[in-house]
Design a binder for these strands. Structure first.
Length: 305
DNA sequence: AGATACCCCTGTTAGC
DNA sequence: TGCTAACAGGGGTATC
């Protein structure tokens, strides 16, 4: 079984969980990190992190791709999170005992505590200055302000972002000889897609994952982006994808989308569309599952919805 | 600037 | 049964 990681639907589920409970609350205390990697991008380390955060009011819970940030009152700073592979943001009552793999705990002025847990420490949190977006549109979901945390400028808008420049993304893809699977995972082209939803979107689009991106027509690519967005929206309705307790929402509940997956984690099992055993290959170092009948390597391709 | 290789980390699984 | 090696994954960094 594959390892779950938070992709756009999982991070958005968490963003929505947090939004209603963190908005306009204040951080009153921060515990020291139990692992240095959780704060590895914080200039000035924990003392600076603590200094900026404590006493600030939380004015938004925002997201672009897999990055989350909370706009802070006062000096134009944002409190940022990336959950990596195993990061969790849990909302618990005050005085809740230490959770497993707990890295940092934040006390709020509403009687709750926000706990950052991360088994594999690929996730991180830090405070960053907010900077204007290059296109003047809102920084991401959950904010109306055209601001983005410094250092995240290389993260493209995501597939659910109404300000996504679809024509620009298609042009980039058309210009690349790399596998379309690889390009879907490239957060600098379009963000939010990880290994689960890349395979799901390609299967639903009828596209062989190793196809050079530039071999696909503009129509194929626009269709692929739309289908990726619709898979994400559907996963969001299920609260995301969980295989075990590595991905849970802020209340500790798993997502229910795993049973809806068509290909990810199903190598060798029967294709749910045609019954043929699904192939598992490696593309640019990433496990890739696809159906050689529904998404064959060469034309003609039979589109399926 | 695009492509590529490598690194970080740890629980689970595969293989001997 | 018990050990080791491989594997899973996103993104930052370095190098060409």
């Amino acid at each position: 079984m594959g390892i779950p990681m938070p992709e756009l639907p999982e991070v958005e589920t968490i963003r929505r969980n947090l939004g209603s409970h963190l908005m306009n609350t204040c951080v009153t205390a921060v515990s020291p990190p139990t692992h240095p990697r959780s704060l590895r991008f914080q200039p000035g380390g924990f003392s600076r992190f603590h200094e900026v955060l404590v006493g600030k009011q939380l004015e938004s819970v925002s997201r672009r791709g897999k990055f989350l940030w909370l706009e802070l009152s006062g000096d134009g700073a944002a409190w940022c999170f990336h959950l990596g592979m195993s990061g969790q943001l849990r909302l618990v009552a005050e005085d809740t005992p230490v959770l497993s793999h707990e890295r940092l705990r934040f006390t709020l002025d509403n009687g709750m505590e926000l706990v950052f847990c991360d088994q594999r420490t690929f996730g991180h949190t830090e405070v960053r200055a907010l900077e204007p977006t290059v296109d003047g549109a809102p920084g991401g979901a959950g904010t109306a302000r055209a601001l983005l945390p410094a250092g995240l400028g290389h993260i493209a808008r995501d597939v659910l972002d109404p300000s996504l420049d679809v024509a620009g993304v298609v042009a980039k893809l058309r210009n690349s000889r790399r596998a379309i699977k690889t390009k879907l995972l490239d957060q600098g082209t379009v963000s939010g897609i990880g290994n689960i939803y890349a395979d799901e979107a390609l299967f639903a689009s009828g596209i062989y994952p190793a196809t050079p991106a530039g071999d696909l027509s503009g129509t194929d690519l626009r269709n692929l982006l739309e289908i990726a967005a619709s898979v994400m929206r559907r996963a969001l309705e299920f609260g995301g994808t969980s295989f075990d307790q590595l991905y849970v929402d802020s209340w500790g509940n798993p997502g229910d989308f795993a049973s809806e997956l068509q290909v990810y984690g199903r190598g060798g099992q029967a294709c749910r569309h045609c019954g043929q055993a699904l192939d598992k290959i490696v593309i640019d170092g990433r496990a890739t599952v696809f159906c050689a009948r529904c998404t064959p390597a060469s034309p003609p391709r039979n589109k399926k919805g």
